[in-house]
Amino acid sequence: MRLLLSILFWSFLGLSCVVLFAGAVLIWLVTLPFDRNGRVLHLYSCFWAQLYFYVNPLWHLKVDGRERLPWNEPAVLVANHESLGDILVLFGLYSPFKWVSKAENFKLPFIGWNMRLNRYVPLVRGDRASIIQMMAKCEYWLARRVPILMFPEGTRSFDGKVKPFKDGAFVLAMKMKCPIIPVVLTGTARTLPKHGLVLNATSHCHVQVMPPVDPAAFPDVATLREHVRDLIIAEKARIEAELPTPAQA
């Protein structure tokens, strides 16, 4: 049954991407003259990503704290990173922001092309020139009152533990004098299999948007960075402690 469901899911994903990308191009063309920040196209992309949760009986998503996200104010959203499924889950925020994502993702057919239409921010890991360009582009969007979203760990955690954070997001928040908004993800590690394509686990994903953190209250980037990381670790532990055990589920 899981094999059949997996075949149906991936087939639906592949076919739907063609149709939905055509819709993205149309929305981009229609809204370009009056929506220079691309908010409408981004919200359409949120629906595109969430569609795969709507049709997959194995995946469930709960979002708390969405009201804390700004619609027309700069902010740096930072989230822990457990799997590729994090991207689908975070689109469930249905709030305008620009992703910072690996440059190779922008080369993916349809999905990557849509990322280009949305003018998300590419990054080549470890490439100094790319990091400088990424920071400049993020400053551009923040100056236009558009939030950005980053994974400060830089890459996925394969053991579920929150890895050390890099400085970039916190440097941006301090320089642009805008809040950091911690976003805690749980349950996403079970969405997409690490090996193969068979969806063999039920995933109960939870997104918790935490209260904004004012960078002006901290003396330096390192102190701000570690404070936000501690908040995410503590909230993640709290949520996971409240989950039912397999015997209770």
Rank of each mutant, 00 (worst) to 15 (best):
S83Q: 09
I87F: 07
D64L: 09
H81F: 09
G65A: 10
G65H: 07
S95A: 01
A75D: 03
P70M: 11
L88T: 11
I87E: 08
L61W: 05
E73S: 12
L77W: 13
G92N: 14
N105S: 13
G92Y: 02
E67W: 00
K62V: 06
F106T: 09
N80E: 14
S95F: 03
E82L: 15
N105D: 10
V78L: 05
A103G: 13
Y94V: 05
N80P: 08
E67F: 02
N80W: 15
G85H: 10
V63T: 05
S101N: 14
V76D: 06
H81Y: 13
K102Q: 13
N72A: 09
V76E: 09
E82A: 07
L61P: 06
E67G: 07
K62A: 13
Y94I: 08
P96I: 11
K98H: 11
S95N: 01
N80T: 05
V76C: 06
K102C: 12
A79V: 02
V100M: 10
P96S: 10
E73W: 14
N72M: 06
G65S: 13
L61C: 04
P96T: 08
F97P: 07
S83W: 08
W99P: 05
L61N: 08
V76M: 06
G65Q: 12
N72K: 01
L90F: 04
Y94S: 06
W99V: 02
Y94W: 11
E82H: 11
L84R: 11
L90G: 01
G65N: 12
V63D: 03
F97R: 07
P70L: 08
F97T: 00
V76T: 05
S95T: 07
K62S: 14
S83V: 11
E67I: 00
E67D: 13
R68Q: 14
D86K: 05
